[in-house]
Design a protein around this nucleic acid. Structure first.
Lengths: 229, 229
DNA sequence: TCTACCCTACTACCATACCAGTTAAGCGCA
DNA sequence: TGCGCTTAACTGGTATGGTAGTAGGGTAGA
């Protein structure tokens, strides 16, 4: 009998804190835990059959990412999505990925370019209705770019920043959008393949500004999820 | 009688974990805690008259910044300075600050420019032998730039990244260097004042590459502090 | 002398207990 | 009925207990 699992998927063999963190992070980004909702150390602990301690560590990490707000002696709450926070995160991400893609365009490693093209093919083959699958592939694409630039660490930094953007993206990605995003991926890779650093940079900046097009509509259409700011 | 303080400076009124974190962070950056040195939850807790719990939280945060390495059931150790980690952090910082300074040069807010010039004056007036004072002013200068761009969040991200660089800077800043750095600050501000985004960006990139000049000498001269990589 | 094993001391991780502070509901009084 | 106080339940922060696992020193045997 297998007892290395408890209900919601906390496994032994890895420390508990990071597992709780990832679980809650995903649930917040996918809007299963709604903005404004109250989280309790003890309730989360009980529901996952772990103690409060690792849950607390997860809360701290989530609060550093701005996904929850911890009010001592009062409670912990899922933050509302803040347009300002999304814009701030986007700015940082654009700055980093602009330099990353310049680096890749300078190196022009053919193996990396092949891999990126292969991934674009995969992106096209995924049914556009499967949002989660596309978002995974999109994330992989960007991480692969960073790795190709020899800047995996830069991707780690982006991961700590992008959660705010991901919340919006989860709400906004639709069919038409996916086609457009894949097209932008292609332009980026072609600029890289031709060694044109400036074009690659501009293509990336344009790509990462795509969220700005959908943000206003989402923020007003789903106002209950957003902080008024 | 004042009892809001215990020996090394943990005060009530603020939660303990972050205080322990900042204390240890500073001591690692200033090489009071040496690379390779062993830290123990219980010993640190005892020496600060706090419990192990908040110390553990500090260790987790420090490990996320790469300042310590936590080996479960074995121990926690101050990381050696890694040239690769310094380069990675520098890359990310340059990318972010390049875009920040472009933004400032675009806005050209006169109040911000005045403040930056005032700070440069202050930097010149500090005795060059006082490394810590200059490093504080340097940090303030860069933080002010981010604020002037309306991107205070971007500075938060940089703070989480720059610890690795700060360890090297603490070892490398000397008199000649300080004059040079202040001169670079002036060039940045003048480019901003004239609204020349490209010049401002290039001046900033040059400024942030300064560490590359001192890094090789430090890494070989103080090899015992560095990871062999 | 060297090797293999055991045993002790120590580690971080997890769980639990206690605390001060906040909140809100309910009761008593006007 | 409506207001104000009391109080009990709950919060996160801190302290402490207990556990599995590691490392290193010392001892017994070859």
């Amino acid at each position: 009998m297998q007892i290395a699992e408890v209900p919601a998927g906390i496994s032994l063999g890895e420390t508990v804190g990071p597992q709780v963190y990832r679980l809650l992070r995903r649930r917040i980004i996918q809007a299963e835990l709604l903005p404004g909702e109250r989280l309790s150390e003890s309730e989360v602990a009980k529901s996952l059959s772990v103690s409060r301690q690792p849950v607390r560590e997860a809360f701290i990490k989530l609060s550093e990412e701005g996904l929850v707000q911890v009010l001592p002696q009062r409670g912990t709450f899922v933050t509302k999505i803040s347009v300002a926070a999304v814009m701030d995160a986007r700015f940082v991400r654009e700055a980093i990925e602009a330099d990353v893609v310049r680096e890749v365009a300078e190196n022009r490693a053919s193996s990396a370019i092949d891999e990126l093209r292969r991934q674009i093919g995969e992106q096209k083959s995924v049914p556009h209705s499967d949002r989660a699958a596309f978002l995974r592939l999109d994330e992989l694409f960007h991480r692969t770019l960073a790795a190709a630039a020899g800047k995996s660490y830069a991707w780690n930094v982006i991961e700590g920043v992008k959660a705010q953007m991901d919340r919006v993206r989860f709400l906004s990605v639709d069919d038409m959008h996916v086609t457009r995003l894949i097209d932008q991926h292609e332009r980026i890779v072609e600029a890289i393949a031709s060694g044109d650093q400036s074009s690659a940079e501009q293509a990336m900046r344009l790509h990462l500004r795509e969220i700005l097009n959908s943000l206003p509509a989402i923020a007003s259409g789903r106002a209950e999820l957003f902080d008024r700011d």
